[in-house]
Design a protein around this nucleic acid. Sequence first.
RNA 1: GCCCAGAUAGCUCAGUCGGUAGAGCAACGCAUUCGUAAUGCGUAGGUCGCGAGUUCGAUUCUCGCUCUGGGCUCCA
Length: 665
Amino acid sequence: MANITVSLPDGSAKELPTGSTAFDLAASIGSGLRKAAVAAVVDGTETDLTAPLDDGAEVALITDSTDEGRHVLRHSTAHVMAQAVTDLFPGAKFSIGPAIENGFYYDFDLPGGATFSDDDLERVEARMREIVKANQPFTRSEMSLADAKELFADQPYKLEIIERVEGAGGDDLDAGEVAGGDTISAYRNTEGFVDMCVGPHVPSTGRLGHFKLQKVAGAYWRGNEGGPMLQRIYGTAWESKKALAAHLHQLEEAAKRDHRKLAVELDLLSFPPELGGGLAVWHPRGAIVRKLMEDYSRERHVAGGYDFVYTPHLSKEQLFQTSGHLEWYADGMYPPMEMDNGTYYMKPMNCPMHCLIFRSRQRSYRELPLRLFELGTVYRYERAGTLHGLMRIRGFTQDDSHIFCTRDQLADEVASLLDFVLSVLRAFGFDDFTFNLSTKDPDKYVGTDEVWDEATEALREALDKHGLEYGVKEGDAAFYGPKIDIDVRDAIGRSWQLSTIQADFQLPERFDLTYVGADNDRHRPIMLHRALFGSIERFFGVLLEHYAGAFPTWLSPTQVRVLPVAEPHEAYARSVAERLVAEGARVDYVGADDGLGKRIRTAKMEKLPYVLVVGDDDVAAGTVGVNPRSDHPDGGEVQRDVPLDDFVARFQREVADAEVAALQA
RNA sequence: GCCCAGAUAGCUCAGUCGGUAGAGCAACGCAUUCGUAAUGCGUAGGUCGCGAGUUCGAUUCUCGCUCUGGGCUCCA
């Protein structure tokens, strides 16, 4: 019997009997690898473990605790879910079911337009466990397009995918479904269930099991709002019970940081139903944090050479006709208000008003770049289903600026903006950024192609000059120009889009903005739209989750709470509080009506940076007991008998250092 | 806007197979005066999200609306 020789990623070679599979290879290397392998990469292509290897093949095994391995587990689990659903709901049509980050989903069309309920999830999950227990093999087969159409004759969504493959000739494929070309692959795990899929899959359903179905949702077929709505089930799947438990635990931790929950617990703000969806009121404790953020923003903008302006919240329709918003952005605007002298709209953006300020008198090239800055509150009609706490609301304030400059100034201006943005974001504890360049939406833009190309090129150049890596989002630009969006990653790894820098050659044209150049001719300025926080509300929400409600001392609503041990110490405690107020701290005092333990606990729940406890010793010696928050960089241990002057000095240094660090960031 | 789920005291939640509701925490009062994450006792607090319908009777069943949560689409 002849042997084959395959090479491994480490460069070594392995000899195996002819007909051996990647699974045999794994088993020959060791039992650990045999258990961990879920698929293989053979000569650069992901392949089932059960496929026979050719002589001379380069083989790398995919193990279950890698991203690729989990992808295989999740995709296979999605198949099992589809099988379970078709068992429980005879006649159910299935469309696509890919692996996604941390899990998978599958979309179904249930007979008679039926929908899933939460109870169905349990039934489906139970059936899935039976399928896993039955350890059914995943068997791959390949067939022509014509045969595939016959096989999936009663699966209209699969047919549509096949027909798309026919029409597209390999382009525009559905990820994870088909490989392209004129062959379709399918995986069968019982006579009754076969699904079209490129694979690879685990050898058999018994390899799966550490999964949990999470939620049902509606989802449009191919994401098309006009198309049918399918029923989607989301699930998560992992390589081990431990990994699954860890993921579920992380979800719980994330839920504890939810800004909506923290906002209630810490009495920061609320969304009264009487106001309507997506409209918030800021309570004193939230408002002070917001004010500190805004003050900081203003300081930085003063230093950055910005001029401050204010503009109203609504305008006659003519303004938004000139700007193009009524033509291109009407869906995002509140409905019009009819008044005796015309039709008014709430402003969805500040830019048209800033254009009016530019145009209010003749401008000289000597004034450029002119940077108009406003904490401008805008109103956008977000569809009801899209609202989400502070992250997506209908009335919000942007730290907005419009910079009018010459073409020559554009590149430098964008480059210095990038520095400015990053330094402001770093001041709030973010240091992991992602950049995206959004290009023209071919269906929704104003202006000529040349101008768009020039603006896009200017942004690209600025990013390149900074040596920043960035993604490109084709067709994601605003209607008036391309943009750079900056996403930040928070303390638990979630990504949020905050800042935006947009180049605009259109609004200066539409508003007929000009400046007089050194040559005494009139020229058209270029406009940059930019927001650093993006929306103060969203930024605050992200910040709240980033810090899990424990704001750094300089941002904390209450920085210090003073607690007397018992009644005799109250006068001294008050004098400590007064001293701290005089030194510029935000301080409160809680008398000895409750036990000390209780009051400390309450302060800890409120996530206060410092609790000062004073008793007999402190009254006698002019000292305090310092109990810092457990996350304090100098350690969270209680220190007794600290001279009040020492604490004041420490506190002031800490706040000043944070501000200096922020300003220098 | 579309699909699913939900709304009971300030907060977290229980409950009513249709006979108008209960706990813990918080609030308030009294007692306690205590050295670092919950002192004890008591009081008050709810047209059970809003509006219709069915019913002798609806917080409970049905429908509509509002708001909320999870998705889709869209977006700062």
